[in-house]
Design a protein around this nucleic acid. Structure first.
Length: 574
RNA sequence: CGGGGCGUAGCGUAGUGGCUAGCGCGCCUGCUUUGGGAGCAGGAGACCGUGGGUUCGAAUCCCUCCGCCCCGACCA
């Protein structure tokens, strides 16, 4: 039982000045967490209870799915991470340190290597697989920009699982099992979420999905179809293009278009000078970039911007991507800034990619590769060909859903889980093999699956609060029932105490506000701020043999005869 | 890493060159009060982020560093 008279808790009347999002403000105000450094927090008793409650739900679901819990240190030697090249690859986000002898260590940002080695140390036969193991552990990532309280911290609690299978079919089954376990976990946590595909098919074999909890302060943007439920990361959204007959356009024609380096200015001149009656969508934008040192050109309709994130996600194998700068144009005088067209791309040695909207047969108004000149009727397939279609244009609200063509909406969310078919990358690098039936060594295939545990606390707070405080689901709340004793007589306190005892005996956790020196107003405000699901007020109603029950979420209030309270609550609480 | 903002008591803040750094919340003591963050009286609590400089005089102006927040880049 949590007694407010002695609970290590101090609620704050004002929002902390450095908090911007609701979960951060409320968790600090209600005394769940305190800031220590950027992206690093300590947890007070109420916070620890809520966090443990989230962990408990996750453990139950993991165990129910047959996954086994293990535990690794956070402090890890460099060697395994050297073998997979992540000591380098992880870059500045990795917390590195040395021991007294000067040996390199790191604080684990994620544990693929360690899990792989653990299995390698114990198992060596196909008969031992499949296997799924997990841990709940503190992770460290030196984020470039921690933000939003515990939504993106540098130290955070994560549940990470890894599956081990002999073959791809096995991996698929393990992956689906995790997917189902995640669905029931997040349901029990009371989170609204969407599962979105995180990688496009163009990336190749690895499959990955994210669990996103919609909320306005989330940092992920995703696409949702209101009709069929299609959901995807903006990077993974695919473009639906209707096949069209463009007829037989006239031959390319060169036009004088002085002073038209932008799409807007071009459309203006086309319409005023040539009465062409066109919009930006009739023009073709040629965006020049440097991909790993090589110049590439990307074609999108003039009314669309290039989304660099989408381009990068869909350009396999490219490490470094940036837009052409003035220095690049200076080196390539044949590429005239503002007047570039695809018809000379081959001659210029440019790799050419097109948004799917730039279909074969379509014709466009585009740059003539001469200053102050454009061309029209530049036709895909006749006047230029591309090296490939690629998802590169910005995604907009109202774009067609790839599966049912309904207008999609764009929404924000917090990523609360990510499941991933890793394949053999880590097993290969660390030489995790098992012998198959024929006695031949086979590299194991793996999946990795993560849930942000501390982040889930924030996500629940984000999705479930109001102006006056937190509103926890039963499974997560520090206590199921918050009993407030008011007045200065002894009777309400004694009665409240009795209720609390009885409820605890039936397994219902209670927070009892037995403070003698606090006014009723203070107790009510605190109860609402802290956010336990049921609030019982034992006070002046006692004269008539009544107590008051309030449901935090709905705000619903009712008076109950003293004798009915316990049975009523046991019925309400599952 | 680029751009912006901020650092004054546990929290929220006032103070833009001048005397003992002010207020609210919280905290302590006493009295009073107990169904919506009560009242009165008294009190404790601040190297004004750090280091340097300008000045007769600096929380206040200038520089360094540190820290925090926001936007962006980044985010297995």
């Amino acid at each position: 039982m949590l007694r407010m008279s002695s609970l290590f808790l101090r609620t704050l009347r004002d929002d902390p000045s450095d908090a911007a999002v609701a979960s951060h403000k409320l968790l600090v105000r209600a005394g769940y967490i305190r800031p220590i450094a950027a992206g690093i927090f300590s947890w007070l008793p109420l916070g620890v209870i809520a966090l443990r409650n989230v962990e408990r739900v996750i453990r139950k679901e993991m165990d129910r799915a047959g996954f086994q819990e293990v535990h690794f240190p956070a402090l890890l030697p460099k060697d395994p991470y050297e073998k997979t090249n992540r000591w380098e690859e992880y870059g500045p986000a990795l917390f590195r340190l040395q021991d007294r002898k000067g040996s390199d260590y790191l604080l684990g940002p994620t544990h693929e290597e360690m899990f792989t080695l653990m299995v390698k140390g114990e198992y060596s036969s196909y008969k031992d697989l499949p296997l799924s193991i997990y841990q709940i552990q503190t992770k460290y990532r030196d984020e470039a920009r921690p933000r939003s309280g515990i939504i993106r911290g540098r130290e955070f609690v994560m549940k990470d699982s890894y599956s081990f299978d002999v073959d791809d079919e096995g991996l698929e089954i393990s992956y689906q099992k995790h997917r189902e376990a995640y669905v029931s976990t997040f349901n029990r946590l009371g989170l609204k979420f969407n599962i979105v595909s995180a990688m496009s098919g163009a990336m190749g074999g690895s499959k990955s999905e994210e669990f996103l909890a919609p909320c306005s302060t989330g940092e992920d943007t995703y696409v949702l179809c209101p009709k069929c439920g299609y959901a995807a990361n903006v990077e993974a959204m695919t473009t639906k293009v209707e096949a069209k007959d463009f007829g037989n356009p006239p031959a390319m024609e060169i036009l004088d278009t002085p002073d038209t380096p932008t799409i807007d200015s071009l459309v203006e001149v086309m319409n005023s000078k040539y009465a062409a009656n066109v919009t930006g969508a009739d023009t073709l934008k040629n965006v020049l970039l440097i991909a790993d040192g090589q110049p590439i050109s990307v074609l999108v309709p003039g009314d669309r911007e290039v989304d660099l994130k989408r381009l990068e996600a869909n350009l396999p194998g490219v490490q470094e991507l940036r837009l052409f700068e003035d220095a690049d144009f200076a080196k390539r005088p044949e590429l005239v800034k503002g007047y570039v067209g695809p018809q000379d791309a081959k001659k210029f040695g440019l790799k050419l990619y097109a948004d799917p909207r730039v279909q074969v047969g379509s014709h466009w108004i585009t740059g003539a590769n001469q200053k102050n000149k454009h061309m029209r009727y530049v036709t895909h397939g006749r006047d230029f060909t591309v090296d490939g279609f690629i998802e590169v244009a910005e995604v907009r609200e109202g774009d067609a859903c790839p599966s049912c063509a309904t207008a999609v909406v764009i929404d924000r969310a917090i990523e609360i889980g990510h499941i991933f078919q890793l394949g053999r990358k880590y097993a290969q690098a660390l030489d995790l093999t098992v012998l198959d039936k024929e006695g031949k060594a086979r590299v194991v295939t793996m999946g990795s699956y993560g849930i942000g545990v501390s982040r889930a606390v924030a996500a629940i707070a984000e999705q479930s609060h109001d102006e006056i405080g937190l509103v926890w689901p039963e499974e997560i709340a520090p206590a199921k029932v918050h009993i407030v004793a008011t007045g200065k007589e002894d009777l309400p306190f004694a009665t409240a105490e009795k209720f609390a005892q009885q409820l605890e005996e039936t397994g219902i956790s209670v927070m009892l506000d037995d403070r003698k020196d606090a006014s009723p107003g203070v107790k009510f405000k605190d109860a609402e701020l802290i956010g336990n699901p049921y609030i019982v007020i034992v006070g002046k109603g006692l004269q008539d043999g009544k107590v008051e029950l309030r449901v935090r979420k709905s705000g619903e209030k009712s008076e109950l005869p003293v004798g009915d309270l316990i049975s009523h609550l046991t019925k309400l609480i599952g």
